[in-house]
């Protein structure tokens, strides 16, 4: 399988908001009510087509556990997109977004593309209004989407929106040369960075997590 771009996207947010369910819905089109808490980080991948380019999303599904943060914040490095999840039925998880956003600003690329996602809209007990969440997102320059990992609503579009925006940034700079690399050929790697003038970094500069083959 070949692809043109590899985007590293982190999934962050409080414990129990449904990050892993969103990841599974997006990459496997599954919802497993018997899912365990994520310890550290788990990976998943999905390739999509954006404007005729094969773009692989490397999804880093992180744990919301506070204690892991010292270790897992290192995973933010090199990520160009983030899906910042809260639970629309739990205002506390919405209030925590500020803290998550500042974590991202601290450890991830400064121009990281962020989509705030209000999950569990299938539940009747919503407590965070769409307007309130949109206001927060707009104020921070983030996208906003609402999802239900249970029935699939919004999940695909949230990721697509993030990937498309990253793609546009990269494309508009016209720095990213289209280069299809056969999967499995070691060494021909390329990562996407949003800050640097050259979007295509030297292989030696890569953080280990951004390798493309």
């Amino acid at each position: 399988m070949s692809y043109d771009y590899l985007f590293k996207i982190v999934l962050v947010g409080d414990c129990g908001v449904g990050k892993t369910q969103i990841r599974n819905r997006y990459t496997l089109d599954e919802f497993n009510p018997q899912s365990k808490s994520t310890i550290g980080v788990e990976f998943a991948f999905k390739t999509v087509n954006i404007d005729g380019n094969e773009v692989k999303g490397q999804i880093w599904d992180t744990s919301g556990e506070e204690r892991y943060r010292a270790i897992t914040s290192a995973y933010y490095r090199g990520s160009v997109g983030a899906v910042l999840v809260y639970d629309v039925t739990k205002p506390k998880t919405f209030e925590a977004l500020e803290n998550w956003a500042s974590q991202l600003r601290q450890y991830a690329d400064e121009n990281i593309v962020v989509c705030v996602v209000g999950n569990k809209i299938d539940l009747p007990t919503r407590e965070v209004s769409t307007a309130e969440a949109e206001r927060f997102a707009r104020g921070n320059g983030f996208f906003y989407m609402e999802t239900s990992a249970l029935d699939g609503t919004g999940v695909e579009s949230a990721f697509r929106q993030v990937m498309k925006k990253i793609f546009e940034i990269v494309d508009s700079r016209q720095q990213a040369r289209k280069k299809t690399v056969r999967a499995g050929s070691i060494g021909k790697t390329r990562s996407i960075k949003l800050t640097d003038a050259d979007d295509v970094a030297e292989p030696s500069k890569f953080s280990s997590c951004c390798k493309q083959m």
Partner: peptide, 21 residues
């Protein structure tokens, strides 16, 4: 190493959960 897999990425939970996962 060549494939950029870091031990922390998979072994963290081997120690955090004593292989229970």
């Amino acid at each position: 190493q060549e494939n950029s897999v870091q031990f922390l990425q998979f072994a963290f939970r081997w120690f955090n959960n004593l292989l229970m996962r």
